[in-house]
Amino acid sequence: MLTKRIIPCLDVTDGKVVKGVKFQNLKGIGYPPDLAHIYEQQGADEITFLDITASSDARETLLNIVEKTAEKIFVPLTVGGGIRSKEDMRSALKAGADKVSINTAAVQNPSIISECAEEFGSQCVVVAIDAKKDEDSWSVYTHGGRNKIEMDVVDWAQKVEDLGAGEILLTSMDADGTTDGYDLKLTEKVADQVNIPVIASGGCGTLEHIYEVFSQTNASAALAASIFHYGTYTVSDVKTYLRDRGVLVR
């Protein structure tokens, strides 16, 4: 049986992890390849790097970091943030990413999804969707959440699947940063609509939140940042908690 995945996410800028990271007694804090390695040792099923800078210099730095990380970890690595073209995706894969996530570029030019899927395979192409609640539905946002697109999240999710995306990284902008839990309704809606794996993201603050998202929705994976960075819990704590409650994990 396929297990549920736990994915620590590192926000990277200028070659460093920017969200506060408060590990104790560990070397190399803030250096992404070292952090990725620590998470891998704790049992992370994948690692995600999100590049939150935009300049081209920073892009080179990121690719360098990806290359160093790929030599060090032996679980899949997803890289996202600022990927605008098939060539950007190729460079990220060449540098050592296993999957690449695209967001704004996919909304602006949906055919990039099918082009990348044809060349690199669907399993490499992750479409990141940033969603924010309106009255009784959710809208798609781009440019790191700054621009609202008049498009329903569930419709967009279906479209990216049809275009050949391999996975959806679904972030609730309402929940993100609150540590109040994932947006279960949003996750449920999207995961029930599409047949590709959905990674739930945004809002994770406790072990129970991760259990909730797996027991109440069809999410395939849960992404979390601060609970791991602040050392509140290790990935291994999460796995133990889930295993004790009957969720199949590695």
């Binding site: 049986m1 396929l2 297990t3 549920k4 995945r5 099923d45 669907s122 399993q123 391999g166 996975e167 047949n195 590709i196 794996p197 395939s220 994976a221 590695r250």
Partner: peptide, 11 residues
């Protein structure tokens, strides 16, 4: 399977 691709850790 209706859920394709098969992505993740399996036995």
């Amino acid at each position: 399977s209706e859920k394709v691709p098969h992505i993740g850790w399996n036995e």
